[in-house]
Nucleic acid binder design. Structure first.
Length: 430
DNA sequence: TCTGGGGTCCTAGGACCC
DNA sequence: TCTGGGGTCCTAGGACCC
């Protein structure tokens, strides 16, 4: 145990049951009622209010398995509405920045805040102020955990949620508190220890975070790699995971969907894959990158044991690197041709690009410069039109309109905070 | 009938080079 | 008959996160 705690102090702040809470902000009648939010395709449960948890609804449960329960218990179910959640998230993060400039947005619903050097600060009070302010201006309840490392801040946050509901704030700031916190934290609740490692560690009687810190370094390194070793250090109070104040550029970008029903027809698979490629290209342009490798994958339903399973992927070099929707669609279609097999019922497909580099550094290909300019200008116009008129009003022909594979979203709340409600689709031929 | 989507990092092993 | 050793790069697979 590190007797002299470092001066570092991190907070992990997150929205409680974030998606469910977002739905409540715009529909206060839901307060006190059980609420769940469903994944794309209304497939599985991805968020639950406290009341829904109390009714035994588990994270990741297929929606159809709890359909009866939802009806019987009058649980309010919502299709996921990421435009809404993303907007709420931004507003929440802005409140966090009023407390310290050093904010790392870790996910849509949580952030690490660096309070190192704020010596003499009453952290508990700060946490409660934060909670009050977010509740007042955004309407979302948050929990706050303070600790000398990010991993301990995570643990403090869990303790705040579980045992200190009244204040919603927990502070780990002495060696004694570290020890107590570690002893009350099950090993599978530790940030960095997933299901597989937790199972493995149980075999060695490692049940709590504390037990884990008692293992020899060599054992941890051998079985959990250097990542596990880092987790051990962090649990003991030595910060080894730095803040990432500026999000590093993405190394890969993926668009993938499960189809709402099985798709057999090549035309429909191609339409879906083309649409994914175009969406991927748009994401590339948003972050001003180009990619040099594109992978298409598709597979049948892995849960259906009565039908033959087939899954495959194929990668194509994109040369020169590109972020043009038109070009990526063409590459994706070529890759699809190679892996598509007649006679299977496809359930999921996706497009992944990697080998990303900044748009500006793009290697100039003298022979292809004309085509590069042409695409760049075309994409500028396309992005501009879509930005002005709403989400994807202008698309490439092969993205299709039949959408036989389209998402099912039966219970989506309105896009309260964003502009486009109804789409009028215009299609350009490539 | 109905089972999400989008990321990251580490390691081992093979290919290749000198 | 003998059949090196070390470095680097790439990829697949497995773990993790929300």
């Amino acid at each position: 145990m590190n007797k002299n705690l470092p001066k570092q102090m991190y907070a992990l702040v997150d929205g409680n049951n974030f998606y469910a809470s977002c739905e409540r902000v715009f529909n206060p009648a839901l307060n006190g009622k059980p609420v769940v939010v469903l994944s794309n395709n209304d497939g599985i449960i991805i968020a639950r209010s406290a009341e829904a948890k109390a009714l035994g609804i588990k994270m990741g449960t297929p929606a159809f398995e709890v359909k009866n329960l939802i009806e019987q218990k009058k649980i309010y179910a919502f299709s996921s509405n990421y435009a809404l959640y993303g907007d709420m998230s931004q507003r929440m993060m802005n409140i966090f920045r009023e407390f310290t400039p050093d904010v790392e947005i870790y996910s849509i619903d949580e952030a690490f805040l660096d309070f190192s050097g704020f010596s003499g600060m009453d952290f508990k009070q700060t946490g409660m102020d934060m909670r009050k302010r977010v509740k007042k201006y955004i309407g979302i309840p948050v929990s706050v955990g303070f600790g000398p490392t990010k991993t301990l801040a995570k643990i403090a946050n869990r303790i705040a949620k579980k045992h200190l509901k009244k204040t919603g704030v927990a502070l780990i700031d002495t060696p004694e508190k570290i020890e107590r916190a570690l002893q009350m934290t099950p090993i599978d609740e530790v940030w960095g220890i997933g299901r597989r490692y937790a199972q493995f560690l149980q075999k060695y009687q490692v049940k709590t975070a504390w037990d884990f810190t008692q293992l020899p370094d060599s054992f941890v390194k051998k079985h959990l790699s250097v990542v596990g070793l880092r987790t051990k250090e962090e649990l003991l109070g030595t910060a080894c995971i730095p803040m990432e104040l500026v999000p590093p550029p993405r190394k890969a970008i993926r668009t993938a969907r499960t189809f709402s029903k099985n798709v057999i027809d090549y035309r429909f698979v191609e339409e879906a894959v083309s649409d994914f490629a175009a969406k991927t290209a748009r994401k590339l342009r948003e972050q001003k990158s180009v990619a040099n490798l594109l992978t298409v994958f598709l597979r049948t339903n892995k849960f259906d044991k009565t039908k033959p399973y087939y899954a495959n992927s194929f990668s194509i070099q994109i040369s020169p690197s590109s972020n043009s929707s038109i070009q990526l669609v063409k590459y994706a279609q070529a890759a699809l041709k190679i892996i598509y097999k007649e006679g299977f019922e496809y359930k999921k497909a996706g497009v992944l690009v990697s080998g990303l580099s900044p748009e500006g550094n793009r290697q100039l290909d003298l022979f292809d410069n004309f085509s590069y300019e042409k695409h760049r200008n075309l994409m500028r116009i396309l992005d501009k039109l879509n930005a002005e008129n709403g989400y994807e009003v202008v698309k490439i022909g092969s993205q299709g309109q039949s959408r036989a594979w389209r998402l099912r979203q039966e219970y989506r709340s309105k896009r309260f905070t964003t502009r486009w409600d109804e789409l009028i689709e215009v299609v350009v031929e490539s």
